[in-house]
Amino acid sequence: MSSYLAVLIFIFAGTGIVLFTFFLARLLRPSNPYPAKTVNYECAEEPIGDSWVMFNPRFYIFALIFVIFDVEAVFLFPWAVAFGQLGLYALVEMVLFILILFFGLFYAWKKGALQWV
């Protein structure tokens, strides 16, 4: 478990280093905000309205397909590691699994879910 301690320490060390450089910059930099500076940058136009609005639902569909394939990847990693000992049975199983998922992908494709415009 000692090697996973490294990950934990690195999380804190990385955050600490970033916060330290922010602190260092705070000591060195000037600070002179005025209204024209603190307004949102929109190529010198006055921004109209908030940007926290509804956006294209297509991003959501792609995210949904991604989740399915990412879960598949999680199943594939242990399969790939153990494949040397498993043999033909595992190969057939995984081909079936991938085919079922690709049937889903093909369905989404034909339904136009992968069409961007």
Partner: peptide
């Protein structure tokens, strides 16, 4: 967090791109 239209578009586009190429 930026509350900027360009930034929001860039952020969600990059999310869509990164998850697509992850697979």
């Amino acid at each position: 967090g930026s509350n900027n239209k360009y930034a929001l578009l860039g952020g969600i586009r990059s999310a869509a791109q990164l998850i697509s190429y992850e697979i």
